[in-house]
Structure formats: structure tokens, C-alpha cells
Design a protein around this nucleic acid. Structure first.
Lengths: 110, 110
DNA sequence: ATAATTCATCGTATATTTGCGATTATTAAA
DNA sequence: TTTAATAATCGCAAATATACGATGAATTAT
């Protein structure tokens, strides 16, 4: 019944899965790219670039914000988003570690 | 209505999202770890380690197989799984590139 | 003051994912 | 040959995710 059985997995497995889920949709990958390239950009700019409705983009932005990968600040009537580079680097490292750790088994080193 | 609008995104964005989705569940992360550590292992061993029913594990294995991260071979009544290291390295590189490319915007180099 | 802009949130529809038990096919053991 | 073990698949139920339009709250422009 799709009870979430996530509690029964290890913390690092849950963390990797959660971050992977954050970038498991092309729209969110695209958003991260756009925001990074523009240093910071307002919601409207993102909506213009993506083939999705404003409300849908807002939803994806919310998800990225909730996991910490982006920060959003209100600037008047507009909303300005930028990458949270600390979190971004953290996620990068978590992925890096996962791949390295797993890959080292390739030669039977562990 | 959840039409899949994936066709309207860039290929690399779709690819990253697809691979991210493959590891967006703790069970699949755990499976990859177990299989890598044991070099190769049979389905039953994986089921024993995970807090999930056999049919559910089988489903996760299928997903990982479909995206190419693991190979499965029948050995008598049993099924033996191992990491497809070529695919694994490819995914590793795709993630690495994504993070590097995005991160370089941090200092306004692009 | 009024109208227009911007964007978050809500409600809703649909699709996908997750999970399990039951079944089935195959192989191994008795 | 019958029985047990193994694992894939099917069918179903429930949870999540995706997408949109409508609405509302805030700001900005007229």
C-alpha cells in the first residue's frame, strides 16, 4: 500500500534518495541550471524559459527550496531565487562519496 | 493533468533526471550498495537485507536493470545481480559534470 | 483610488510510484 | 515424481507526484 518504509533504511541512504529525488525531474534540473547561470533570477524569468505553467513552476521551486538547494527572497512584487551554494556543495559531496564508495568495490578493495 | 512534458526539455536534463530518479528511493540506493559490496549477489540475499517483500524488491531490481545500472543473470532457480560498472561510471560522470558546470557559475565564470 | 503585475497557494484531475499477496514458471531436492 | 525453493509477474490498493486553472495577497503602475 505504499506505506513509506523509508524509516527502516539507513540515514545516508535516505539522504541520497531525497536529494536524488529533488533533481529527478527535468524541470527541476532546468531550474537549477537557469538560476545558477543568471546568478539569481526572478520567478517570472524561470517561467518564461520552462514549458510549464506558472503554478507548476512555483511548485517545483518550492520543492527545491524545501530541500535547501535554492533560496528565495521576496523583492517587491517579485520573487528572486538563487542557488544555496553551501547546500549545493553538500549535495555534490554526498553524491561524490556515494559513487566513490560504491566504485571502490569494483576492484574488491572493501 | 500530469501530461508528461518531458519531451520539451533538453536531452541532458532528461538524462540527469532519469538517472536521479533511479536512485531516488532508499531501497534502490541500498540495493546498489549491497550488490556492489558483494561483487554479485542473488536476489534472495538482497531481500533478506531489505525491509521489503520479495515482490517489491524484485520491482526495484527491475528498475535498476532497466536503466542499466545493474545486470541480472539467471543461475538455476536463482537470479544473480551485479553492478554494470560501465553504466555506473557513465552516470557518475553525468552527475559530476552537472555539478561542476553548475558550480562554475558560482564565481560568474560563465 | 484603481488597475495591472507578480507569484504563492488551493483545488482538482490524472499519472506514476510504492508495496504486498497471490500466482506462475523454473529449477533443485526428496 | 512429488515437493520445496526461488524469483518474476500480475492485480490491486494506497500514496505521491505532476500539471493546470482559479483564486488571493501583495506590490507596482496609472
Amino acid at each position: 500500500m505504499a506505506f513509506s518504509k523509508k524509516a527502516e533504511f539507513k540515514d545516508d541512504e535516505i539522504a541520497i534518495a531525497a536529494f536524488a529525488k529533488a533533481i529527478s525531474h527535468p524541470a527541476r534540473v532546468a531550474i537549477l541550471k537557469v538560476v545558477a547561470e543568471s546568478q539569481s533570477c526572478i520567478c517570472g524569468e524561470i517561467v518564461e524559459v520552462l514549458p510549464l505553467a506558472q503554478s507548476t513552476v512555483s511548485q517545483h521551486l518550492k520543492e527545491l527550496k524545501e530541500i535547501g538547494l535554492i533560496d528565495g527572497t521576496v523583492e517587491g512584487a517579485k520573487s528572486c531565487y538563487c542557488i544555496n551554494w553551501v547546500a549545493f556543495e553538500k549535495v555534490n559531496n554526498i553524491f561524490k562519496q556515494f559513487f566513490e564508495k560504491t566504485n571502490c568495490c569494483k576492484d574488491g578493495c572493501c
